[in-house]
């Protein structure tokens, strides 16, 4: 799992975001397009791309895209 690919997937899920404007330091909750639907789309993307589930609470504790990336990564490794 590569961070650039993750950021592209995230931008696709949330829609109308230029992946180039995002980094692992981005506080995704402060994005203009962040919404409850964007949160749902993000979980759906994580499930279909990485085959792991992130709970609402886990998402809540993530502040940056880097935090989310780390959470997903540890679940993927746990599963492997």
């Amino acid at each position: 799992m590569h961070p650039d690919e993750f950021i592209r997937n995230f931008a696709d899920a949330v829609e109308d975001i230029e992946p180039g404007s995002l980094s692992l330091d981005t506080n995704f909750r402060e994005l203009e397009n962040w919404s409850s639907i964007a949160a749902l789309m993000t979980l759906a993307m994580i499930y279909s791309e990485y085959s792991v589930q992130i709970t609402g609470n886990e998402l809540e504790t993530c502040k940056t895209l880097g935090d989310l990336f780390t959470t997903i990564n540890s679940k993927v490794l746990e599963k492997a």
Partner: peptide, 11 residues
């Protein structure tokens, strides 16, 4: 709680 319902359903 949309996110939990989502996780439950697809699981």
């Amino acid at each position: 709680d949309g996110l939990e319902i989502f996780n439950f359903s697809i699981r």
